[in-house]
């Protein structure tokens, strides 16, 4: 990502060093800057107005998300989950000034691992069973589900096969203390790597692309390579999954719904500790449905971007999630199966 130096003004009342702000990430919702605040290097997340949205809608959403983000970050802290400390809020410019976490996103860690797998010629069998539809009811005459969906009538519904939710597969993580220590060391090494990581999916595989691909090929050429065996690699993924599962279980036990669980929104810090970020879509809610959707969103994020690991990784996350809090997990996973089934049973005409 190119570093764009950008000067911008802050309100007088802000005790903030209005030096050059460095935009170092353009996220989905806002721009992320690094700056100095009371002598500390901090991160500024600014939600600028989105021109594509109607101004009224934009105002409402921006305010809502800043409020949600601060509430989510604070609530998690209280619950013992590591999140960046919030230092200040600038409601004029819609900025949150928060702790800059020194670490790497789980996404980047996984992309480094994927790169290393290719480098060391390790393969997985993941793609053979990639998320197939469970039920293949090939077109028998009238399709009642479709007609009812398309027409908003429910009357034919009973003639269709009753949908049956399939319980998600959950894998217990077994990781000996020895392996765990080893994985911790590998993880520290990856986190400590300070070069730029800028991998975008598949860009390194497109052969006939222009400058972009050359650039990213070069960058991936700069990636640290580690001599990891397949077992060591999977132990590292187990270690990450364990932390993710535990953290999410605690978060849900405190009725915090993150709303945007992806590997981009989790950072591993210098102490190998998992830090959750990006709470703009979070809500506080005692709702099994919302917790299940939270996990569903994460599953999809892992499946799509990290397909190479998806066969095991999400199952391990669920394993850790269940081990941490059996009672909660049983209810949430039951609903999870229903949420997933809705996706599969959806009418797909057109």
């Amino acid at each position: 990502m190119s570093h764009i130096a950008k000067k911008f003004k802050l309100t007088e009342s802000e005790a903030m060093d209005s030096s050059m702000l460095i935009c170092f990430k353009q996220g989905a919702e806002g721009r992320i800057f690094k700056t100095n605040y009371l002598g500390k290097e901090v991160l500024v997340k600014e939600r600028f107005s989105k021109k594509y949205r109607h101004p009224d809608l934009d105002k409402v959403l921006t305010k809502e998300r800043i409020t949600s983000e601060i509430r989510g970050l604070m609530k998690c802290r209280t619950a013992g989950i590591r999140t960046p400390a919030v230092y200040a809020v600038n409601s004029v410019q819609n900025q949150i000034i928060m702790e800059l976490v020194d670490g790497k996103t789980v996404k980047d860690v996984l992309l480094v691992l994927e790169q290393n797998m290719k480098h060391n010629n390790i393969s997985t069998e993941e793609d053979n069973d990639y998320e197939m539809s469970v039920d293949e009811d090939s077109g028998d005459e009238e399709d009642a589900v479709d007609s009812s969906e398309v027409n908003g009538k429910i009357k034919n519904k009973q003639s269709s096969v009753p949908p049956t939710p399939v319980a998600p597969s959950v894998s217990e993580i077994s990781l000996s203390n020895d392996d765990k220590t080893k994985a911790q060391t590998f993880l520290s090494n990856i986190i400590a790597y300070t070069g730029e990581i800028n991998l975008s999916i598949s860009s390194d595989r497109e052969s006939n692309r222009g400058k972009d691909s050359e650039k990213s090929n070069q960058e991936s050429g700069n990636l640290p390579t580690f001599q990891l065996s397949k077992d060591e690699l999977f132990n590292l993924i187990k270690l990450l999954s364990l932390q993710i599962g535990q953290t999410l279980s605690t978060m849900h036990a405190n009725n915090i719904i993150h709303g945007d669980l992806t590997t981009s929104n989790m950072i591993v810090d210098r102490n190998n500790c998992l830090v959750l970020i990006d709470f703009g879509l979070s809500v506080i809610k005692v709702s099994t449905e919302d917790k299940a959707v939270d996990l569903y969103v994460l599953k999809r994020a892992i499946l799509s971007l990290h397909s190479i690991f998806s066969r095991n990784m999400f199952d391990w996350v669920l394993g850790a999630y269940r081990r941490e809090n059996k009672k909660q997990a049983e209810a949430v996973l039951k609903t999870f199966a229903e949420v997933e089934m809705r996706g599969r049973k959806r009418c797909m005409v057109g």
Binding site: Y130, E131, M132, S133, D146
Partner: peptide
């Protein structure tokens, strides 16, 4: 087949 996901 009535249901046939893009990622299949």
């Amino acid at each position: 087949t009535q249901r046939y996901r893009t990622d299949e």
